[in-house]
């Protein structure tokens, strides 16, 4: 991929509370494409997004975004880089004291000096793109889960970013909301020329829209490639994850002592 990579992680090691979350992960995310990062719960997929966004720093290794070494950026440069990034949080993370309109207008008001009527038009365009122009007067508490994520999506594209990161966009959504989000992610990517990073464990939805996918487990990339390549991947662990088998390389049982001893059976 080389020069077309928008994000490039190299030998990233990251530990938290004494637990090693990434153990030398190396990953390239191509420019202008949708890349899905999948993996079982608790493998640090969200942590990966926070490393890319500079909210966390790796212990060792390099995290480059658009040629900038993120962990070494000074505060001001980091905040400037973040203006080119949008992030959709799992919970939506709308500001609960602001209306839908004001939530989407927030980044515009903070980062630009646009006149009010122009902000009004941009906000309505972004809300129209996610199909919620009519909901602009509502407060976040009046929205359903799917609508919350769509508003958050409109907010994260308000400044026309180059990169957008989706943190579990499909988790806990009904089939219609999921379909809407799949369509939005695909459409936004093609119409705005965004680089999209999609973190998810919803295999069919993710594979249906991504150009490129990688699977993380145990702090490492265990498989990567196009969706077709992944489906034909020889690794048992990759196949267990993709097909959702309850037992396999990742055991069903949490490591435990010998059962006969726990149940008080057998001689001692």
């Amino acid at each position: 991929m080389g020069s077309t990579a928008y994000i490039s992680l190299k030998d990233v090691v990251f530990s938290r509370s004494g637990r090693r979350i990434f153990d030398g992960i190396t990953l390239d995310i191509p420019r202008g494409k949708i890349t899905a990062i999948m993996g079982p719960s608790g493998t640090g997929k969200t942590t990966l997004l926070r490393l890319i966004g500079g909210q966390l720093r790796p212990d060792t290794g390099s995290v480059q975004v658009d040629g900038h070494e993120v962990p070494r950026l000074k505060r001001k440069a980091l905040y400037a880089l973040r203006e080119k990034m949008g992030m959709l949080f799992q919970s939506g993370a709308l500001f609960t004291d602001l209306s839908v309109f004001e939530n989407v207008a927030f980044p515009l008001r903070v980062h630009t000096k646009l006149p009010e009527d122009m902000i009004h038009d941009i906000v309505l365009m972004k809300l129209e793109a996610v199909g919620l122009r009519g909901a602009r007067h509502l407060m976040p508490s009046e929205l359903s889960g799917g609508m919350t994520r769509r508003v958050a999506l409109a907010r994260s594209i308000a400044l026309d970013p180059e990169l957008i990161m989706y943190d579990e966009p499909f988790a806990g959504q009904d089939p219609i909301a999921m379909g809407v989000l799949v369509k939005l992610i695909r459409d936004l990517n093609s119409s705005m020329g965004l680089t999209s990073v999609l973190v998810s464990h919803d295999v069919p939805e993710s594979l249906s829209i991504c150009h490129y996918a990688c699977i993380i487990a145990d702090g490492k990339v265990i498989g990567e490639g196009t969706p077709e390549e992944l489906k034909a991947h020889p690794s048992d662990q990759v196949q267990q994850f993709l097909q959702g088998q309850p037992d396999g390389p990742v055991p069903f049982h949490y490591p435990a002592d010998d059962a006969s001893r726990d149940f008080g059976l057998g001689g001692a």
Partner: peptide, 18 residues
């Protein structure tokens, strides 16, 4: 807890100041 502070950071707004 609802990631509002994180999302502010990711929008390039320092929650300490805002």
């Amino acid at each position: 807890a609802t990631e509002q502070l994180s999302s502010m950071e990711m929008m390039g707004v320092d929650p300490l100041r805002r």
